[in-house]
Nucleic acid binder design. Structure first.
Lengths: 138, 138
DNA sequence: TTTTATATTGAAAACGATTTTCATTTCCGT
DNA sequence: ACGGAAATGAAAATCGTTTTCAATATAAAA
C-alpha cells in the first residue's frame, strides 16, 4: 500500500519524503475515522517537527491516490479512513458517544442501483449514514 | 405552516418579526435546496435592508422548528429544504450539473431498519446521497 | 401612556476548519 | 558540487457560519 502511494507520487513527479512516509504510516496503522487534527497529534508524538500543513497536504494526496476515504459526519470536520483492503461499507453514527459502526448490506446496494437505473443515473459512489443511538448509549 | 412557526416561536418567548416573516415566506415558496447565501439574495431583492445574519438566524430557527431540512452535498455549504408537506426522501446528486433528484424507496428504508435492529441501534434519521451523472449529462 | 425589561436587528468582528503564500530547505539529475 | 523543481512549516488568508455589540423595536407592567 505504501508502494501504491509511491507509484502514485512518482507518476505525478512527486516525492515520497520522510514526512509523507511518517504521516502515511501513522494513518494506515489507524483503524478509526480520524480527523486531520487527530492524525496531526498522533504524528506529532513521534515527529514533533512535522507541521499541520503537511498532514493536511498528505491527506489530500492520499485521497487523490484512492488510499483514503473522506466522510463528513455532522461534527464539523472531515474524517479520513484508510481505503486499503477495506470493503465498501456504510455507517451507523451514535449521536451520544459519537461512535461509528460500519456495516455492509448487498441488498441495499442493489436497490440503490435499481433506483439509479430507473432514473437513467450513472452511480459513481454514495453515502449512507444512519444517525441514532447505539446499543451502549441507550 | 407559518402558524406552526409562530407557535414554535412564542413557545420559546420569541417574536415573529417582519424580517422573519419575510425570510420564511421566501424560503417556503422555494422548491429547491437553497443555500443560505442564495436565500439571502432572494430575500434581499424584496427587502434590501435585511441582513445576512438575520437570514442565517432565521434558517436556524426554521431548522429547530422542524420546518427546514438541512443537507450537505459536497459543495461546501449547507443547503436548506422546506419540510412542509415534503415526505422523507433521498437524493441523487449529479456531479456534472449539480442537479438534485429526489427519490423515495420503502424497501431501502425497511432494510436500514433491519440493519439497525441487528446492531441494537435506535435510528433517529439518516442520509442517503447517491452521487454520479444524471441522464441529461451523460 | 410612560416605564421597563427583553427580544431583534444588522454591521462588523470573531470563529474554526482548511488552504494558500512565501521564504527556506531538501532532493534529484546532471 | 550545481541548478532547478518539489517540499516544508509558520503565518496569513479563505470561506461559510456564528458571535458580539450598540442601537432599535416590542410586549408587558405600572
Amino acid at each position: 500500500m505504501l508502494e501504491h502511494f509511491e507509484k502514485f507520487l512518482s507518476g505525478r513527479g512527486l516525492r515520497l519524503t520522510r514526512q509523507r512516509q511518517q504521516v502515511v504510516q501513522v494513518f494506515l496503522s489507524q483503524k478509526d475515522h480520524v480527523s486531520a487534527e487527530e492524525l496531526y497529534l498522533k504524528v506529532k508524538k513521534e515527529s514533533p517537527e512535522i507541521g499541520y500543513t503537511t498532514v493536511y497536504r498528505t491527506l489530500k494526496l492520499l485521497f487523490e491516490a484512492d488510499l483514503a476515504h473522506v466522510h463528513n459526519f455532522r461534527d464539523g470536520f472531515s474524517r479520513f479512513e484508510p481505503a486499503h483492503l477495506v470493503e465498501h461499507h456504510d455507517h451507523l453514527i451514535c449521536r451520544k458517544c459519537g461512535g461509528i459502526t460500519e456495516f455492509a448490506n448487498k441488498h441495499i446496494e442493489k436497490m440503490q442501483e435499481n433506483v439509479a437505473r430507473e432514473h437513467g443515473f450513472k452511480i459513481t459512489d454514495h453515502t449512507l449514514d444512519i444517525y441514532g443511538v447505539c446499543r451502549d448509549c441507550q
